[in-house]
Design a binder for these strands. Sequence first.
DNA 1: ACATTTTGTCAAGTATATTTTACATTATAT
DNA 2: ATATAATGTAAAATATACTTGACAAAATGT
Lengths: 64, 64
Amino acid sequence: MKNLKLKSARAAMDMSQQQLADAVCVSRQTINAIEKGDYNPTINLCISICKALGKTLDELFWNE
Amino acid sequence: MKNLKLKSARAAMDMSQQQLADAVCVSRQTINAIEKGDYNPTINLCISICKALGKTLDELFWNE
DNA sequence: ACATTTTGTCAAGTATATTTTACATTATAT
DNA sequence: ATATAATGTAAAATATACTTGACAAAATGT
């Protein structure tokens, strides 16, 4: 399932997938795949993404 | 760094590493390594662990 | 309409999470 | 003191997260 919370948090920071990828030191394809929802990132990457976007794990990666 | 929040949440449920491993379908060594803190589990495994222990991601895997 | 940036996607390779087997140590109970 | 359960740790194999390079489609700006 798509991660729309991530997508909208990124939009709120006015960052492209590429900019977020650079900020957390992964490839753009990795960010794209996470937003698209077809895979399973590591917790350290999730934490880096949260910090780059000013959110917590529960806000971006916890459902219900 | 060790994950003591995980270790104590597991203790609070009176589960062994083996029992938690079975509950989330991984090996005991994987649980042990996560508690010991020397690696980087996937977010789906973290979420499974949280659900098995009645906690959220922020409660078990977010620092500060 | 054109140029440029952003996003979606694919295939092949590399890095690393996780498993399996195995053994030693520490705790708990009888 | 002895048995049993629980934990710590290690090496080799397997599964999968992530990269690199590349191309097309969609969005945005002029």
